[in-house]
Design a protein around this nucleic acid. Structure first.
Length: 298
DNA sequence: ATCGTAGCCTGGAGGC
DNA sequence: TGCCTCCAGGCTACGA
């Protein structure tokens, strides 16, 4: 389940493609380019012959700037991994993956070294699109137009902690719901939300308007520390669905304190971890470290 | 405007 | 063994 750390691992892997030129484009599953409104044919036509720039990321989105010797119109190749998306850099002769959706052939840098950039996605929640760029509504950074509304992510230098605190405390909802709202802060998903709330000793249903500034500070520090630690381990893998561009899984699952650990002891106090239904999925909490607030907001 | 929910999608796990 | 249901969950569209 790729969240910010997993996407960052993939971004770093894609940086090696900077300067390479796309020679061929095959869209095997039209749904995977559904965000490219002009359709799969236009997608392929606009990508072929373009030179890839260094990979960028905000939250869970990745993009590669596109140009060539004649054109620099600010177009980018924007991608989202969804639940099960993978970007793989493999030799062009490698067997086709069963859920291969989009295949980009790259011009060989030297004879005998033909590489593909492949987008593989079992559940097809992810996808690719060619888009223009525009200033972000939040910090003015130039980003792909479809994500101009997306909040700055907590590992970016332009992330404004005071603004985050103000915006969070003006919400009238539960704190986990707010953490998962990508327009408030991007990059945090269900796994790292639970981990950060546990570290900050906050219950997921704590009403945002009752949070004190110090608690928001604790929460933000926890979010950053959990994301950084996961990044240091190469991300979290529960199955073969999250891998880096070479197909390798991360190791952070071993370090998770609560997520997926129902009935196992809290690493801090030993109380068995509980799983609660939340937004049609699950929240994992330590009932002792994270007591349910008297007034709860889901 | 803000908040909350349904639906998209596939394969693995577990029950019968 | 095989069929069925449930579950995973990021994001968008839509309704209240």
């Amino acid at each position: 389940m790729p969240e910010l750390p997993e996407v960052e691992v993939v971004r770093r892997g894609l940086e090696r493609l900077a300067g390479q030129t796309v020679s061929t484009v095959e869209v095997l599953t039209a749904r995977s380019v559904r965000r490219h409104l002009a359709g799969p044919t236009d997608f392929a036509a606009r990508l072929a012959g373009r030179r890839l720039g260094g990979a960028r990321r905000r939250g869970k989105y990745l993009w590669l700037p596109l140009d060539d010797d004649r054109i620099d119109d600010g177009d980018v190749l924007l991608g989202h991994l969804g639940m099960s998306g993978q970007f793989l850099v493999v030799g062009s002769q490698a067997p086709l993956e069963s859920h291969l959706r989009v295949r980009l052939g790259l011009e060989p840098i030297r004879t005998g070294l033909e590489l593909d950039l492949r987008f593989v996605d079992q559940r097809t929640f992810g996808g690719l699109a060619i888009t223009t760029v525009t200033p972000s509504a939040h910090d003015g950074t130039v980003v792909p137009a479809p994500i101009a509304h997306l909040g700055v992510d907590p590992l970016e230098p332009t992330f404004d902690s005071e603004r985050f605190s103000d915006r969070l405390r003006h919400r009238r909802t539960g704190v986990k719901r707010a953490l998962l709202d990508q327009t408030l802060v991007s990059g945090v998903g269900n796994i790292y939300a639970d981990e950060a709330l546990w570290q900050a000793r906050l219950h997921y249903a704590r009403p945002t308007e009752t949070l004190r500034r110090a608690e928001v500070g604790r929460l933000l520090a926890a979010v950053r520390s959990v994301l950084q630690d996961a990044l240091g381990q190469g991300g979290t893998s529960f199955d073969a669905l999250y891998v880096d561009v070479d197909g390798q899984a991360g190791y952070f699952e071993r370090a998770l304190a609560v997520y997926g650990r129902e009935d196992q002891p809290c690493p801090r106090c030993g109380t068995p971890i509980r799983r609660h239904p939340f937004m049609n999925r699950s929240s994992y909490v330590c009932p002792r470290c994270q007591p349910r607030p008297r007034r709860a907001r889901w």
